[in-house]
Write a protein that binds this DNA or RNA. Structure first.
Lengths: 249, 249
DNA sequence: CAGGTTGGTTGCGCAACACGCAACGTGCGT
DNA sequence: ACGCACGTTGCGTGTTGCGCAACCAACCTG
């Protein structure tokens, strides 16, 4: 919409791949050096990019502060966190929390059996949206047109033979997930990792977030993991209660 | 430099304080609604802001991804992390890692005795630059003109009676720190918290980062904490070796 | 050491683009 | 049902961001 702003923002993901010099940025943006410079300067003034000693630019530390603030404004996370920690302690497995936002699914919290961690590991990385249990839960609850639109626009990488192959398969699975109120990913992303997920619902009944329990095959079989499903669902329900209570919207 | 980009970027810290509606953003920016809208749209297209159900805007999840990438491009952190973890395990105290960037000091990693955590707690929050041990170390090694300029522009909040009161006091302490090669903060930020820090130097000998060890009074006295100084300095030296070896620049 | 190359910086004229106005929708509260 | 507050759209104007060209500085290379 706004040309210069758009160009400036396009620089950020570029720099996310690694530091780059002025010329490099200019050519990749398809603009004149001088234009790129003005944009970079403005970004620099606002702390979003930093100029390192060799005059190349990289992402700036201000992003930490913004991401931190963004995390704090996601109140689902605040509310869910203690529940997730407890679930992690009890089961000893990895717990994830994810939300859907603008055709993307993002992990926003993670609890390992021993490490309560934010912004770590997969948090901030793109979720395998076609196979992850949390993704299925979040997509399953989208309004029909958007769900279809998203499903059809996705790519379907075959991480493993059990990965969801295409849009029809995904939509079918989403229907099932919607029906049963929970989701699984048995080796669909990594051969040896199984995963079960449950939805967190807001006061309006819509799925506001999803949490999941993951464990490698070598620790527990898929069947054994499934025995934890009731516990996971109880946790999700507890979070839903807290969440819908506190955010009546 | 670039008006529209500057305005757009100014929106981000605004939203960091909490979600805001279009009108709110417009008035705080001092621009017409329609202008604010165009900027917000562009930010939205790039995932930096998200429009929640009530049509208000908040920071978007894409920021997580960018912050993550920013963190990964800070190779000091990568290199230092294992050392910090070890130090945390051995001493049982909290370890911080910080860098200086554009007149600000940022925590970029933290290790608690039990929790290795990134982007958590104070990471991303402004460092108490006038009192923190790591801040003193980083400021102490700035070139004279910049150091003076920074010191004089700072505010000197008296968190406690032991906080650094003004620029001359800070500059005096920086000189001492520079001399001795380590820094302390005994109750200067929070009455009951003591802290010691040591510099991490790059191949050129400049201080590239600083790490610190913090503990509350009730656990160890300042004197006891000081007995860990040699260990802290060894860790910092080890990181420096790794770092200067790997980044000959 | 001269000459070429690469990458960054500055000044300036032109027109594209971003700005704000005004008018239109829309949902909510009274 | 009405009015108000807030978000949205179309459009003319001139500010502002654009690219050109020329200028530096550093680094190779012969």
């Amino acid at each position: 919409m706004s040309q210069s702003v758009g160009r400036a923002l396009a620089i950020l993901p570029m720099l996310a791949e690694g530091p780059a010099g002025l010329e490099q940025v200019a050519t990749r943006l398809g603009v004149h050096k001088t234009t790129a410079m003005r944009l970079l300067r403005t970004l620099h003034e606002h702390g979003l990019v930093y100029r390192q000693d060799d005059q190349r630019y990289r992402l700036g530390a201000r992003l930490f502060a913004l991401a931190q603030a963004a995390a704090e404004s996601l109140d689902v996370r605040e509310i869910a966190h203690p529940h997730l920690v407890k679930l992690g302690e009890v089961t000893g497995h990895t717990v994830h929390l994810a939300v859907y936002e603008d055709r993307e699914v993002m992990y926003i919290d993670k609890v390992d059996s021993r490490y309560p961690v934010r912004m770590y590991s997969r948090i901030g990385r793109p979720v395998a949206i076609t196979v992850a249990a949390v993704a299925k839960l979040l997509l399953a609850d989208l309004p029909e047109p958007e769900r279809r639109a998203v499903a059809e626009r996705l790519e379907y990488p075959m991480y493993t033979p059990r990965s969801t192959p295409d849009a029809p398969a995904l939509l079918a699975e989403l229907a099932a997930v919607r029906e049963q109120g929970w989701a699984t990913d048995f080796g669909g992303h990594e051969e040896s990792i199984n995963c079960i997920g449950a939805p967190i619902r807001g006061a309006d009944g819509r799925t506001a977030a999803a949490c999941s329990l993951s464990a490698p095959n070598v620790v527990v079989t898929a069947d054994e993991l499934m025995t934890l499903l009731p516990q996971l669902r109880r946790t999700a329900a507890a979070i839903s209660d807290d969440y819908s209570g506190r955010v009546p919207a």
